[in-house]
Simulated assay, not measured.
Amino acid sequence: MTILVLSTLLIIGLILILAEVIFVPGTTFVGIFGLVISLAGVAFAFANFESGTAWFITGVAFLLNFAGIVYGFTSGVWNKFALKNTLKGGTFDGRTGGLYLGMEGKAISDLKPVGKASFGDNIYEVKSEGGFITVGSKVEIIKIDNNIILVK
């Protein structure tokens, strides 16, 4: 019966320490609880077995817990929690390349004051300087600033 209690304490402690490292990193409560249960198992070993056997059980428990922690950190589980992608963007991303001041185009939707206009073969979202411009009207670029195309 004492071996069953001892092994249960040590196994539950090891499982909780592994759960802390692998499944719920950062909470520390589960890991501390696992460490306390492992230490209770070691104390139980010293209370119920002779000194040499208790030290052997302590060494095995320490090695298993240490191996579990090392495995948790080297298994690649942390890669699942790490952000690997970065957002690449900015205020100017080249959308207005090929446009220039004074370039003429045609409104392909009503500009109220924002709408769409075509310049060459491309369609751009534009903003009118003076308010409403009807579809089909000629427009002229008067300002290009941070991907905002201002027309009149």
Rank of each mutant, 00 (worst) to 15 (best):
A47R: 08
S137N: 12
G105N: 11
V21I: 09
T53F: 07
I142Y: 13
I32K: 09
V30K: 02
G136V: 02
L4F: 09
L63S: 14
K84P: 09
F56K: 07
D110P: 04
K138A: 12
F56V: 08
I32V: 14
V77E: 09
T74G: 10
I57S: 04
I37V: 15
K112S: 06
I32E: 07
I12G: 00
A19C: 11
I142T: 15
T86M: 14
I69K: 07
G13R: 03
I108P: 00
G68P: 01
G131M: 08
G102Y: 08
N122D: 13
V60L: 15
V126T: 09
A67Y: 00
F49R: 00
G13C: 08
V114I: 15
G89V: 11
G59I: 05
A107M: 07
P113K: 08
K143S: 05
I17A: 03
K80R: 15
L150V: 14
K84D: 14
L10M: 06
R95P: 02
K88H: 10
I69R: 07
A45P: 02
P113L: 07
A61V: 10
P113E: 02
N122M: 11
T8R: 04
K106F: 01
F56G: 12
I108R: 06
P113M: 08
Y124R: 11
L9W: 03
K138P: 03
F29R: 07
E125M: 15
S75P: 03
G26F: 03
G52E: 00
N147I: 11
G34K: 04
K152I: 01
G72R: 12
I144H: 02
K88S: 11
I123R: 06
I32H: 12
G72L: 08
N79H: 11
T58D: 05
G72D: 06
G41N: 04
I148K: 12
I141V: 12
A82I: 12
D93M: 15
S7Y: 14
G41P: 09
S109M: 13
L39K: 07
